[in-house]
């Protein structure tokens, strides 16, 4: 890469500390144990680990303050719904980015749909505020400790969570679009 620099305050492009996904996974399992960090896989070069609601805040704090990892940037937070996974129906997917090492990491956790309580990350990342509101708005994930957990994109008096899989997109009463015709 030959992009030149004009005296930035944070020179990310010149500091290159290479850390591998293997190191991150081993360090996390070593620190928190296999009951807290599990199902580590690498897909398309991106490390994904799973954790539990009890461990998410300590894991995030640890990664934030780690002297070399420095996962200090929350790229995105996505909700997801798997209706068939009993007891683990709703999921939260955190995309972390260590800007100094240029390494991304995905942390997932799953909660039962009857009691979808997840601790908030607003105290660590200011940007988590709206991301968590969006996940609440669409999936009904209840972020415990969030200062203002109200709907953000949908209307306030909506009484369901539209991105859950039980709400089909198309009008179920339509007869002119039969799935068989489309090979579905």
């Amino acid at each position: 890469m030959n992009a030149k620099l004009l005296t930035p305050a944070y020179a990310l492009l010149t500091t290159k500390i290479m850390i591998t996904n293997q190191e991150i996974a081993e360090d996390l399992v070593g620190k928190f144990g296999e009951s807290a960090i599990f199902n580590a896989v690498e897909q398309y070069g991106l490390l994904q680990v799973e954790t539990t609601t009890a461990h998410i805040v300590p894991v995030i704090e640890y990664l934030y303050q780690h002297p070399t990892f420095k996962f200090q940037f929350l790229t995105d937070l996505a909700g997801i719904h798997f209706p068939d996974a009993k007891g683990k129906e709703l999921g939260v997917i955190y995309h972390l980015h260590s800007l100094e090492n240029n390494v991304r990491l995905i942390i997932k956790l799953y909660v039962p749909i009857e009691n979808p309580v997840v601790p908030t990350l607003v105290n660590q990342y200011a940007c988590a505020n709206w991301m968590e509101r969006e996940a609440y708005d669409f999936f009904g994930l209840d972020f415990e400790g969030h200062p203002n957990l109200i709907r953000i994109l949908n209307v306030e008096d909506m009484d369901y969570f539209p991105m859950r899989k039980e709400y089909p997109l198309e009008d179920a009463t339509r007869e002119d679009k039969i799935d068989a015709l489309f090979g579905r």
Binding site: M1, P8, L12
Partner: peptide
């Protein structure tokens, strides 16, 4: 704000 983060370069 002074952070040279650009996806095209990183």
């Amino acid at each position: 704000a002074g952070v040279d983060y650009d996806v095209r370069a990183m």
